[in-house]
Nucleic acid binder design. Structure first.
Lengths: 200, 200
DNA sequence: GTCTATATGGCGATAGAC
DNA sequence: GTCTATCGCCATATAGAC
């Protein structure tokens, strides 16, 4: 019974991920998630009691993934310029593998800032720890008189925005889906030079 | 009667703007919009027939604003570096005055890329014209071997992302609302140097 | 744990008086 | 053009059999 139980819960979470990522909290239907998971609608409530709990589990996981990856790369013990290269390569690589995450988080965080802060806490994401680690990995380097927060925000902007704004950018530049994937792949190699030039 | 009619339609659009910007298509209620506009729910349908029509009017306007401003600045006939400074100053200034737009567009565009393309057409936003104008305003300058699409995307990333990701960034860096406003104001002045360094 | 059946409420939309 | 009243549907959530 335990095995069966775990399996159902897992399938529900997988289904919920797919549907919520695509349509958001308000746009998703419990029936749709049940269908996706191949189980009955009532079982969703058995495991998660209500829609919001289920959504929060999915949202929390997305936040964990996007920050864990950033922590991991930012914590690597290598020279500054190498770390910049690593971030652009590995973090964008991560986003290529999880391309739904930026849009999902940016969309779903909007409704309630307090809830966002609460979920980040429950996900054991410590803003101050992230803050410290990023500052530390930057502070001893020559980023001139630049505010280190701008440093980080610029880095994140250049990585994340092309994923969040993808539908619009594809229309503007007339990219096919494949064409945009190729473009992003090449972009990974152009960004380190752009960024290293910028901060010297 | 004509005066009254125009007034009602306008108030509906204003109310719809406020509610849709805040809660999106799925999260907004027609009743809420009617309350906001100070009129009856049935009148919404009298003027716009259904929810989607009303939403599309609001969405179209947001797209028009964000692109019109970009066209306008990109079309100014001044030297390259001055134009870069102008874009960062004026475009971010525009976003400061319309801070809901980035999040609203990035969130609501996700559901249906075809609909997005259709609305951009109906808003007389010509991707190819934008494409051409931006390329033209860049192509004769020394942006090295950089792909001009990356040039534009980097510019937009640095301007727009801090607005779209604001709730998260405020938590990470422990900004108050006012503190973040001040930060953005200073950021406007740091970005031109960052960007000009980057592309040389 | 998993299902079918159903309660309950809310929302978009319309009818129809004024 | 503007309102009140209401329809009809659909989504979340629960009851209860197995």
């Amino acid at each position: 019974m335990v095995k069966k139980s775990i399996s159902s819960e897992k399938r529900i979470l997988e289904g919920a991920k797919k549907i919520f990522h695509e349509k958001g909290l308000e746009g998703s239907r419990m029936q749709e998630i049940a269908d996706e998971a191949g189980i009955n609608k009532a079982l969703l409530h058995y495991y998660f009691r209500n829609k919001e709990n289920l959504f929060n589990a999915v949202f929390r996981e997305a936040l964990q993934e996007i920050f864990t990856k950033l922590f991991q790369i930012a914590g690597t013990d290598i020279a500054f310029e190498q770390k910049i290269r690593l971030i652009f390569h590995d973090y964008i690589g991560f986003l290529q593998q999880n391309s739904y995450i930026p849009g999902f988080i940016l969309s779903e965080m909007r409704q309630d800032p307090d809830k966002l802060a609460r979920i980040m806490k429950s996900a054991n994401i410590s803003p101050s720890a992230l803050y410290a680690k990023m500052k530390e990995s930057v502070s001893n380097e020559s980023i001139g008189e630049m505010d280190y927060r701008n440093f980080i925000i610029n880095l994140l902007s250049l990585c994340i925005f092309p994923f969040a704004a993808r539908p619009l950018l594809q229309i503007i530049f007339d990219f096919t889906d494949e064409g945009y994937d190729d473009f992003l792949e090449k972009r990974k190699n152009e960004l380190p030079e752009f960024f290293m030039n910028a901060i010297r």
